[in-house]
Design a protein around this nucleic acid. Structure first.
Lengths: 153, 153
DNA sequence: AAAAAAAACTTCAAGCATAAAGTTTCATAC
DNA sequence: GTATGAAACTTTATGCTTGAAGTTTTTTTT
């Protein structure tokens, strides 16, 4: 009977999801709090800077919203505030006057490097109780779920 | 060497977290979209109604914000909108004129029953690729993380 | 070449979320 | 019994987020 779909496994999956949601929210909230306390920033801003740090030549606004899977209007606001703080610069795209390129400034790059190092340390501390091989197995299962959802789009 | 804490397991844990975050966000977004499409509601509203459904005698505003781990002001707004829609009633607490009790109405209870049934079906479909025993193991690891964070508060 | 359609943004309205400040009510101290 | 402090909320300011509507520029059709 192993592997069959019963009403009981449905409940079990629901419980898994609720626990997963609870745990990830707890981690997320801890990260938000740390970002706020140590860097006076937010998770969305960190996410944007993380994305930009992987593209030294910059990303168009629409590419950025595609990478982060958030709406266009959302990206507009976050980039605007990051630009005000001097962490991001908006450049014009030569052949297209509609588009604009968002790019980390040197200040932004330095700031993000510090944030990323701290972030890795926080995560490492939080996941201390999870052995490495267990971590790999969990990631595998979660990817299965993520892929399942991507296919539906 | 198994189980020792090295720089490599730190990176591995970071990757695990990023994948977990990506997967749970994907599931969360799918649920949000379904709630919107099928019930014209939101995840925060669903969460509030789920909490209230477990307390037939109602919850005080402060208790509700404690259960959901969100701020007081947040609860005020969500309950207000749910009350406008007739799903929640605010009652006075006999001995204390400061406090108020939030409680599902009959309409609210019926509405939530429909939402909860649909929700379980969505989750079951999304987690179809995850076998039951794997699910149990993942939940175990996630609980370890969640407990770790609770202790710090 | 003019018209229509599409693309790349930005703006807007509404809801969610927090922290901080403000109100009213209750409990304690003196 | 009056003052002090705490508790239970609400309000406000700011930022995140979306979907929808609006603008400008580019591309495609005809």
């Amino acid at each position: 009977m192993s592997g069959s779909t019963t009403a009981e496994t449905s409940k079990e999956r629901l419980r898994l999801w609720l626990r997963a949601l609870k745990a990830t929210r707890a981690v997320e909230n801890a990260v938000r709090e740390n970002l706020r306390r140590d860097f006076a920033t937010t998770l969305p801003r960190f996410d944007v800077m993380a994305a930009l740090s992987q593209y030294p030549d910059g990303l168009k606004m629409s590419e950025l919203s595609g990478v982060l899977k958030v709406s266009n209007g959302n990206v507009t606001g976050i980039i605007e505030r990051l630009a005000e703080d001097g962490f991001v610069a908006r450049e014009k795209v030569p052949g297209d006057r509609r588009a604009s390129l968002a790019k980390l400034t040197d200040t932004g790059r330095a700031e993000f490097a510090a944030q990323a190092a701290a972030h890795e340390a926080w995560i490492n501390a939080i996941f201390e109780g999870v052995p490495g091989d267990e971590a790999a197995r969990i990631a595998e299962s979660l990817d299965t779920v993520a892929r399942q959802l991507e296919d539906k789009d």
